[in-house]
Design a binder for these strands. Structure first.
Lengths: 338, 338
DNA sequence: TATTAAAATACAATCGATTGTATTTTAATT
DNA sequence: AATTAAAATACAATCGATTGTATTTTAATA
């Protein structure tokens, strides 16, 4: 027989011991004597037995698996959040499944449907840029299973959210540019159905207002904040002529714009000062180094999975909405110091 | 009743139709009449039915799930490989589970054990730096299930490998440095139990020999090629005094070393020319831009999953070892042009 | 040694879907 | 209307592990 294909029944037959006893032994039940346990473990090793989780999970209605659903793992911020999640989850004996929505709602829906079919115990999620309605998420929650939202908050009733104060971080970043003498600051914003980007935009606007600068819709660029979006934005900036500052909702777009502007002879920060968001490793390496906002990504992951596991383990807990707000910090580098 | 908790038996009872017919209807079997199918689909929608894959997979002995096991997803190369894998896999209706070994053998073993228990249909894998024996992988293959190795090849009999010609790429990179006039080239190498790093080292050595340069063990640094390893290497380089070239087995270490050397007043490429490996996005952005070797990461992922799925689908195929060698290219940038 | 509680083990149902075989229903043919 | 093949549906076993209950074995007590 091939190793690993053995079942408790094979052990049972080989030893003349009932399969229920074998199961209990392998799970360390005190109902099985030491002597029998030893025999069973020995035989299990001999046959290369590995528990079939499909069967076990079906019976117990538990998979000890949680899923992370996020836009894309190649973003450093998300990759770091995942590390935090995995640390906590593995400690607690849970498996982690990672799923990329690629910021597509269609894909996000497919993923959730598959997670329902596979009966994962809980989901950690940062919704896609296209997600504006939440039926697919409610379908999961209606099974009595929890979702914890990180980074991009969600206003579903009873939802648990972990994020930084995006409004405040944004306000400070913009104010920093103003203090450096910028008068015409462009903002790179993301999809407005995402609360996160609305908050970042709001912080930017409030900072302008506080300092008596005019808020001009033409200076707010909405996009997916990809590399190509950054280049597109840089081109528009050159057309606007008088721009002297950029506050971008992520580093990716900020860096792409910087590279393009540099190639067109713009000096940073003298001509245009730039502030990004996320503290990507690349932001520290580019010339000049990019001022950016650091989020505690690893901690966000740790706390998110802590809260999720707690929710999974006590089903009785309240159904309150929870907003867990962590601190962020503005890291000032050369790209914004005039 | 809560949505989503419905089973075929609930549909069966509600309609007075046997559950076997319900199952066949939901799977589109021609054995069920159109009329009955319609009734069943209607009721399924009404009850929010979602198939329980645990039960289905247990019965069918298929999970339509493949796993990717690799050192860490935050490396751009690996993240890109994953995108290629997912594209192919999703097209074919397979789920993809992503697992990070963090270059730890202990973790890799745990992961494989969990994948066995969860009965995934196949594995795509880039082994950890610590992996020198393969019992854990053989345990999986003994179940009659395939593993495809990418990036880091594996000499297990009957294994399928996808990678570039690391020897050749390395040879060319080193030769390039020599042509730029470098005489004392340091090589950053990885763990020597990994075939990949042995090949890269061999290519470096051969290039030196071909051009009549002495091969000096003190100029070959073995490490995990992390950021801190890069800094450590840079310090040693300063002690060696006469180094005029670096060929690193990855960009991460090369870039960390460059940053450190720059901070100590070394001019790149004039004093020391640098070549990395992997074409990380960061390599194009650093000053000066880093010469590096580009691997077709997305294609590697696509081809790897193609081969894996083929192997999953025809169990009868030969058990030959396969080495699939893709092209790489040296991208020459300012860091190496003297 | 008989009695009885405790310990160890066996029996049997269950989780939800699938599938080979048997039975019933329908429709076509004579 | 009787016959028969084909279509539709029902029955029942199965995948592998778990778990409540029943039974047997062991050991302790009187």
């Amino acid at each position: 027989m091939k190793a690993g294909k053995a079942t408790i029944h094979d052990i049972s037959k080989a030893l003349g011991i009932d399969s229920s006893t074998v199961s209990r032994a392998l799970n360390g039940s005190p109902r099985v004597s030491k002597k029998t346990k030893d025999k069973i473990f020995e035989k299990a090793r001999e046959l290369g037995y590995q528990r079939n989780n499909l069967a076990s999970n079906l019976r117990t209605q538990k998979t000890f698996t949680i899923a992370v659903v996020l836009p894309r793992i190649s973003r450093y911020f998300f990759a770091t959040v995942i590390s935090g999640i995995e640390e906590k989850a593995y400690q607690a004996g849970y498996n982690v499944i990672i799923c990329q929505s690629l910021d597509s709602l269609k894909r996000e829906k497919k993923i959730i449907s598959s997670l329902i079919s596979n009966r994962v115990d809980g989901i950690l999620m940062s919704i896609s840029m296209q997600t504006a309605s939440f039926e697919h998420l409610e379908a999961y929650m209606n099974l009595g299973k929890p979702i914890v939202f990180f980074d991009r908050p969600c206003n579903l009733k009873g939802s648990i959210n972990i994020n930084i104060d995006n409004y405040k971080a944004s306000f400070e970043a913009t104010e920093h540019l103003i203090q450096q003498g910028c008068k015409h600051i462009v903002h790179f914003s993301g999809a407005q159905n995402i609360e996160l980007y609305r908050q970042r935009k709001a912080g930017y606007i409030e900072a302008l207002k506080k300092h008596g600068l005019t808020v001009n819709g033409d200076y707010i660029f909405e996009s997916n904040l990809s590399e190509s979006d950054g280049i597109w934005a840089a081109k528009r900036i050159l057309e606007l002529k008088n721009v002297d500052g950029i506050y971008s909702s992520n580093d990716t777009a900020a860096i792409a714009a910087m590279q393009y502007l540099k190639s067109k002879g713009v000096t940073i920060p003298k001509d245009i000062a730039v502030v990004g968001f996320n503290n990507d490793p690349i932001s520290a390496v580019i010339e000049p180094p990019l001022t950016t906002i650091n989020q505690p990504a690893f901690r966000i992951g740790k706390i998110a999975s802590e809260l999720l596991l707690k929710k999974i383990q006590n089903k009785d807990t309240e159904n309150d909405s929870i907003f867990n707000v962590l601190n962020s910090e503005l890291i000032v580098r050369a790209s914004s110091e005039k």
